[in-house]
Design a protein around this nucleic acid. Sequence first.
DNA 1: CGGCGGCTTGAAGGACGTCAAGATTAGTGG
DNA 2: CCACTAATCTTGACGTCCTTCAAGCCGCCG
Lengths: 252, 252
Amino acid sequence: MSSTRPTGRLPAFDPEAGDGDELNFCSTCAFGEVCLPGGFDKPALKDLHCLVEHVGPYRAGDSIFRVSEPFESIFAVRAGTVKTCTVDEEGREQVLGFHLPGEMVGLNAIHPARYPCDAIALDTVYLCRFSFPALAMLATRLPGIQQQLFRLLSADIGKAALLASDYSANERMAAFLILLADRYAARGFSATRFRLSMARGDIANHLRLAAETVSRVLRRFQDQGLIKVEERDVELLDSPQLRKMARCILHG
Amino acid sequence: MSSTRPTGRLPAFDPEAGDGDELNFCSTCAFGEVCLPGGFDKPALKDLHCLVEHVGPYRAGDSIFRVSEPFESIFAVRAGTVKTCTVDEEGREQVLGFHLPGEMVGLNAIHPARYPCDAIALDTVYLCRFSFPALAMLATRLPGIQQQLFRLLSADIGKAALLASDYSANERMAAFLILLADRYAARGFSATRFRLSMARGDIANHLRLAAETVSRVLRRFQDQGLIKVEERDVELLDSPQLRKMARCILHG
DNA sequence: CGGCGGCTTGAAGGACGTCAAGATTAGTGG
DNA sequence: CCACTAATCTTGACGTCCTTCAAGCCGCCG
């Protein structure tokens, strides 16, 4: 497919430009808070920058790591979407989550010291790779880094708890869309128009629904004028209403 | 009620004895790995010991912290059981988890900087209170402490993901019982006989089931000879079979 | 073209929730 | 020690939401 597809609403990503210098380190990255000018001192920035290794591209379907591989690194998504999932012994997949640009992957591997899941690229993915031992050592010198690691880990506990709910298919789907929108917005992307980089089946699995139910709910939402769906492109027409439907899950 | 109740299978806990000296710091505690003799150096042990504050007793129903209170401390359970839960604006409760002796409470509050849930004592509870800023500062000096914090946080991500599954009521109940047994066993308690310190309704809520379903599943398990239930006392008669039922959830 | 995977739509079936009533226990005060 | 009440737990009957099963549609690629 040509790179000029008309529905490509995310800014084009050029892995060779814009995020390589020491003072503007990945402006959308999860470590942005501690790194961006004004937020942190330059030596820390430089240390962190020395630690990181840019990897990619991965193509759709490529694995970044596999379950039970020894834990070595955590990753920040620079571009693309990463799916994390487990496979039980019957071969059934369990989608744990989707990781958008600026978000971390692999934090759940620290404890078992092995990756407890697979990480799969859903489209073309570029990552920053952090050796965790090195990062932890750096964190002992730089409290800002340590704090940020604690925050990232703590936040993931909350995220994981979100979908543990037994709410209805409507509520779960609404919450999923709103969360996606908020996460895109937090990284500077559009909060009302975005492309679902994952298949319906993956969404369904993640929300613990059948793929058919996802289809039906999306159609219902569209019939009610809440969203507009075209293939994998979604436009939120009535975010407030969606947020209202999802408010019990967004635990507010 | 007398303190010599015949069903009291957990060792009696004397908060004034056994865990106060600097070299045997809470042998069942989540920090045990870094503190127990041989595992860690004495200065660290002493520093950690200075940091901790023993609090309690809390009585059944007492709150340890409430949602939206500013985050200050994390807690380790010394005795009793703590329930963490949120309450949405319709007043419906969401049980996030139960915390047994040796386990940590409050790790999910680091990121939002406010407690995102209530913590309620289910019976008589004694805690160790750690000021988190002080602990984080200590962690910059003592990599072992930092590592342990990272591990605890990472482990909680995995735990939270467990119950996100949409498995059957049987599978969820079996997993709940096995997890409980394993957690008790890890702290030196019996893995086959224990007392449920939480109400059926709390179990149901946590597993995203109706209280009636919990009753029915427990009865079914008993009729099948898998367990023996008497009020809140449970005996696992066929742990292997239960583990088999739950194996898909225990993500093996 | 023809096959394949992802997506949608419809109809039937099942697992769990809801409602309602009864059983057992715990807590309280006489 | 014994009522009395409230809370928890159990059990049954019924309804519902979602899954499962099945078929058809669409875009993609060999």
